[in-house]
Design a binder for these strands. Structure first.
Length: 299
DNA sequence: CTCCAGGTCCATT
DNA sequence: AATGGACATGGA
């Protein structure tokens, strides 16, 4: 068992509410206000249970391997949770900005304590973004589930299956037909295998992208990502938001963002790109949080 | 039946 | 540089 102190501006109930929206999600389970997820740490399959026993504390229990814990594993699990829930970020400036923003003021209060729930694995984030390109979300979840259940690995604990996302090595070795069999487009199949191969060859890595962001800024990381076939501006910014934690990542082409702004502003039609740029001027350096909160209003 | 989904690539102007 | 079609499927 492991206890993790969390900031005041964090709400576990908001986190659970967000995570339960995607009912078709296959990478975690929820029961009795506890969250369950299978992690692979140092080649060990660890099923963790996350609960919120008291204010400002998360409790992490190791369910399937209670005896294997050691400090090294504990530290890695802690890092994972901090990354997943974006716990290291100071949200005070975001809420200060949002309080004066015509679009964000209401939803910042409504979802107070919600953090940008991430995808610590670069490969998983890229796959999820590519799978979700141009199709409705429910179909995207269907495709993701097929992808995971066909090529991923699982353990069973008390009659419930817990999945690990397929590795880049597994996907890099597939043929196009293996993936089109799941009913995704041929191009998506090519993109997924291509990205998997780049990660396998270490030409593409999360650490290198994070370094690039520190050294040369977030725009440079976006440029690198967009060079890759299958990654356009939307996918690059989506992955920078959910995985690289780039505060100014802004998937401005996103139809969900457009719809959320349409509803928030009571418009008759979706705002244009230029209108979105104008409305988002105040969000500078918090675009990713603004987007995340706006998406949250859609369901 | 038609239109649109958490877009991107590619061919054509 | 800008524009339009193709793409797989499913829900409204």
């Amino acid at each position: 068992m492991l206890l993790l102190t969390v900031p005041d501006e964090f709400s576990f109930s908001q986190t659970l509410a967000y995570l339960s929206v995607s009912s078709a999600e296959c990478m975690y389970q929820m029961k009795d206000k506890k969250l369950y997820k299978l992690l692979k740490i140092d080649d060990i399959d660890l099923l963790i249970e996350i609960s919120n026993p008291t204010q400002n504390v998360l409790q992490i229990s190791f369910i399937n391997q209670p005896k294997i814990m050691n400090e090294k594993i504990e530290l890695k699990v802690t890092k994972y949770i901090q990354d997943w829930f974006d716990l290291d970020r100071d949200l005070v400036p975001f809420y200060q900005m949002a309080a004066h923003d015509p679009i964000l003021s209401k939803i910042a209060k409504q979802f107070y304590g919600l953090r940008n729930i991430g995808m610590p694995s670069l490969f998983e984030a890229l796959c999820w973004a590519i799978i979700g390109q141009q199709i409705n979300l429910s179909f995207a979840y269907t495709l993701k589930r097929r992808f995971v259940e066909t090529f991923g690995k699982s353990i069973t604990w008390q009659d419930q299956k817990y999945w690990l996302f397929p590795t880049s090595g597994q996907i890099a070795s597939l043929s196009i037909d293996d993936l089109t069999a799941l009913k995704m487009t041929k191009k998506k199949a090519e993109y997924l295998i291509g990205v998997a191969s780049l990660i396998e060859s270490t030409e593409l890595s999360k650490s290198a992208l994070l370094d690039l962001m520190v050294q040369k800024g977030e725009k440079e990381a976006e440029k690198q990502l967009v060079k890759i076939r299958g990654i356009g501006p939307w996918t690059a910014n989506y992955v920078m938001m959910r995985c690289l934690r780039a505060s100014s990542a802004f998937p401005i082409d996103d139809v969900g963002l457009q719809n959320a702004m349409k509803f928030a502003l009571g418009l008759d039609q979706k705002p244009t790109k230029d209108e979105i740029k104008t409305w988002s001027i105040n969000w500078a350096n918090w675009e990713s949080y603004a987007t995340f909160y706006l998406w949250r209003t859609l369901y």
